[in-house]
Design a protein around this nucleic acid. Structure first.
Lengths: 186, 186
DNA sequence: CACCATAGTTCAAGTTGCAAAGTAATTTTC
DNA sequence: GAAAATTACTTTGCAACTTGAACTATGGTG
C-alpha cells in the first residue's frame, strides 16, 4: 500500500508547508500566527462573538479571551457589548485591523492561488474534487458549528501589496489595563 | 463559481480537521501534539539526530533540545552519544515510546487510511497525484534546505542551521528534578 | 426570588518557540 | 600542532499560546 503512504506524506507536506509559511507571514505583519488567524476570522465574519471564534479555531474561550484582549490593545479589533444580550460581546475589526489583514494575506492564498489558477480547467476541477473528498474523509463527523469558512475574498487578487510589511512587533504591549472593557470595572 | 475558493475551503477543512484531531489524539496518549510528533519522527526514522528532527519539524535546535529532554525524562526515547562523532547524539525510541506511538497512531492515519484504502485503485491514484501536486505548490518543492521561495518577501531569518554533525555532552544522569510524571489531561 | 445556565474574564501553571550564550568535539588553517 | 573556525547540542531568559478553575455579570425558569 505505498499509495496510502504516498498520500499521507503529501498530506503532511501540505500541513507542514502551510504551518511554516503561515508563521513567517504573521511575523511579517508583526503578529503571531494565532493572532493573525483570529484577526482573519473576525474580518471574514464582519461581526461575531468570542465564542464563535473559539469554536472555529478549536480552542477554549479562555484562550480567545486572552488573544482578543491583546488584539484590542493593539487597536486591531474592537469590543462592544451586545445590545440584545449584555453577556455577549460583539467583535468587529477596526480599520487598522483591516489593513493588517490586507498586508498579510492568508498563507494559503499567497502561495497557492496563483498556481491553482494557472492550471487548466479540467485539472482545477480534479483538484477541487479530490480535496473535497479528502476533507470529507478527515472531518466526517465533526463538521462542527462553523459553516466552514466563508473565505471568499479577503483581498485575494491583490498580488501587489506586501511591499512594506509593517513590522513592529515588540510593542511592549500589555498593561493595557482595561480600557475598552466596558463591562465590569465600573 | 470560483473553483479557487472551493479548493481553498477544502484545503482549510483538511488543515483544521487534522489539527484538531491531532490534538485530541496526543491528549489521549498523555502527550502534547508536538511531543507526539517528535516521538513519531524518531519512531519512523529508527535512529536519528536532534538536528534531523528539528529540520523535519521546522523548528530550531533549541526547541528540539527541550522537547527531547522531556521525552527522555518520560522514558519514551533514549539518547546516546554517537560513536563516530561524539558531538552528535543518536536518538532512539524505547519500548515504552513505541507503545505510545502504537496507541496513538498518526493523527491522519486513524481517520483517513481506512477510507482511502476503500477507494478504487484509479481513485487512489488520482488522490495521490492531486495531493502531491498541491503539496508541491505549497512547499516550494522542497523541505529541508529550502532554497527560500522567492515570492518577494521575506525577512525569514530562517534559523536552524541544521546540518548533521554531532555533539556530545553526557546523556542521562542529567535531568535533575523533573518529575517524569506528566500532567494527565483530564 | 432562588436557581441554574450562558458568555466572558482572570489567574496560575504548563507547553512551545526562539535568540543568545555556552560547552564540547571536530575540522581547518597557518 | 596549536589557534581559529565550525558543528552539534544544551541552557537560559523571555514572549506567547493554552487551558482548567474560579469568578462576574446577565438571562431564563419555575
Amino acid at each position: 500500500m505505498d499509495r496510502t503512504d504516498d498520500s499521507l506524506i503529501a498530506l503532511r507536506r501540505i500541513l507542514r508547508a502551510t504551518e511554516l509559511y503561515g508563521r513567517d507571514l504573521a511575523r511579517d505583519a508583526g503578529l503571531t500566527a494565532v493572532q493573525l488567524r483570529v484577526l482573519q476570522i473576525v474580518a471574514e465574519r464582519g461581526s461575531c462573538h468570542p465564542s464563535d471564534v473559539a469554536s472555529q479555531m478549536g480552542v477554549s474561550q479562555a484562550t480567545i479571551s486572552v488573544l482578543i484582549k491583546k488584539l484590542v490593545s493593539y487597536g486591531l479589533i474592537a469590543r462592544q457589548i451586545s445590545a440584545t444580550d449584555r453577556r455577549q460581546v460583539d467583535l468587529s475589526i477596526t480599520s487598522a485591523g483591516r489593513e493588517k489583514v490586507a498586508v498579510a494575506p492568508d498563507a494559503l492564498q499567497q502561495k497557492y492561488v496563483a498556481q491553482f489558477e494557472g492550471l487548466p480547467e479540467w485539472e482545477q476541477a480534479m483538484v477541487v474534487s479530490v480535496l473535497e473528498r479528502v476533507a470529507g474523509m478527515l472531518d466526517a463527523g465533526d463538521i462542527d458549528a462553523a459553516p466552514v469558512l466563508a473565505v471568499g475574498e479577503i483581498t485575494r487578487h491583490n498580488g501587489a501589496g506586501q511591499g512594506a510589511p509593517t513590522s513592529e512587533r515588540e510593542r511592549s504591549a500589555d498593561v493595557p489595563e482595561d480600557q475598552a472593557d466596558q463591562r465590569k470595572a465600573s
